[in-house]
Amino acid sequence: MQALIAIDSFKNSMTSIQANQLVATAFAAHGIQSQQIAIADGGEGTVAAFLANQPGGELITVPTVDLAQRPIQGTYGYFEAKKLAIIEVAAASGIQFLDDGLVPANTNTYGTGLLIKAAIERGAQQLVIGLGGSGTVDGGTGILRALGYRFYDDQQRELMMVGADLGQVATIKTDAVLPELAEVTFINASDVTNPLTGPTGAATIFGPQKGLATTEIANYDQAMQHYMQVATGQVSDHLGDGAAGGIGFALRYFLGAQVKSGFKLIAEISQLAKLVQHADFVISGEGQVDDQSFMGKVPIQISELARQAGKTCYLLIGNQKGRNQAFSEHGVTAVLPIVDHVSTLAEAMAKGPTNLAKMADRLARILTSR
């Protein structure tokens, strides 16, 4: 009996790699062999997934700054033979760096730009930028500044390009841009389709979770529109520009980035569809599944692959919302919540690894008793 295990992370509890290994260990005790695929969607865990799913990569650590310009050490994945770098926005500009007093008006993505610059200086010619988990809404201007773009107000004073500066931009100069950029290709790894501005734009949809007050949204969105107008000559609603607080726009417009699904990139390098074909059954899951899961979330994309291949698929999850029938229609054989007793959310996350291992053991006993 052969299982394919491809579980997404349980946020603040387990990484994809940790979750996969726990299930594989439980299955092995019952004689079930497993193939493990580390999974991510462009957010946290994307670098680890690339490094785990193909050989020849290494984790590089370099000095950078966080979203408030505080010095930190940042990491990215690098494949020397392919001249390929994998960078997560969250590594330097993630929401985990937010603390009291930090709001989009006084943060930016400069630290992510420093990671990109370091990778290019190392020799990277292809960069995959995972756009999940960002804590800023600066339209990607911090990244651009780190790469040599310069922003000035109408008095020709240079702007640092925190969020509060978006509405002040009058001129963008490119004479100091890193020359190597001309030889580099970018891919935005993201499943977000929001435009940069408007009712579904970066400030409106993602600003509040990063500290933007409801009363500030309209003015912030207008400032973002102003920035886009100065940069491009118009305000457009290009899909994906709003990803990661507008980084999607900066990388697409200024650096010519292509936009690809983070999950599909991982699926491609790991040959996931082929592995599903060779498995007897498939295991996926994440912290919570709900109605939004049907809008491209990783476990459902995996269950759809299983359905197309005629394989059973079990989702091991922390919490389920939504009808079983709806999940069944998307190829899920059963949704199996791992929490087996009344507990708080904090307790459930702390005991996540133990609970997942216990559920995997239960499932293995059922599968091997047939």
Results as ranks from 00 to 15, higher is better:
S293T: 13
G207S: 10
A52D: 14
V103N: 05
M160I: 12
L131A: 11
G198Q: 08
T171H: 14
T136Q: 04
I87H: 05
T200D: 09
L336P: 06
G133V: 02
H30R: 13
M295Q: 14
G352E: 02
D361N: 13
A257R: 06
Y314D: 07
G57T: 03
S9R: 13
G148C: 12
I5T: 03
L275K: 15
S261D: 06
A182C: 03
G262Q: 06
D291C: 00
V137A: 13
V169P: 01
Y220L: 02
A6H: 01
L255P: 05
L98A: 07
Q308S: 13
A360W: 02
G256I: 03
V169M: 04
F79N: 07
L315I: 09
F97K: 00
G94P: 02
E329M: 13
T112M: 06
L275A: 14
G207C: 10
R307A: 15
V177P: 09
A118R: 07
A170C: 09
F254Y: 12
A49W: 06
A357M: 10
A91K: 14
N219Q: 14
H226N: 02
R252L: 01
A279V: 03
D340M: 10
F249Q: 08
R370G: 14
Q225E: 15
G248L: 01
R365E: 11
L255K: 00
D153N: 15
D66C: 05
A231W: 06
I60W: 10
L345C: 08
H30A: 12
S328A: 14
V259D: 10
S328C: 07
F10E: 06
V177T: 12
A105K: 14
D154E: 15
N20R: 00
V230L: 02
E183D: 13
V192W: 08
Q308L: 15
E180W: 05
T185Y: 05
H341E: 14
I129E: 11
K117L: 13
P199N: 13
E329K: 14
A105T: 15
D237P: 00
D290H: 03
Q229S: 11
G245D: 08
V23W: 07
N188S: 09
S93D: 03
G198W: 10
L251I: 08
Y110W: 14
D191F: 11
V332W: 06
P199M: 00
A105E: 15
G285H: 09
T171S: 07
Q54A: 10
N319K: 13
G111R: 05
F281Y: 10
I95P: 03
A81T: 12
Y152R: 00
S261C: 04
F294H: 05
L166A: 14
D175R: 12
G211V: 06
D154F: 05
V23R: 03
L67F: 02
P199W: 00
G246Q: 03
Q33V: 08
N20H: 04
Q73P: 07
N194V: 00
V339D: 04
A81Y: 01
A348G: 05
M161P: 05
T344H: 05
Q36V: 11
S270Q: 01
K321R: 12
L345M: 11
A346N: 11
Q18I: 06
G101D: 12
S236Q: 15
L22E: 07
A189S: 09
G45H: 07
Q301F: 02
Y227T: 02
I37H: 04
A346R: 10
N20G: 15
P199L: 04
A81C: 02
D100C: 07
L316R: 02
M228K: 11
L181H: 11
T185I: 01
F186P: 08
G163T: 01
L305R: 05
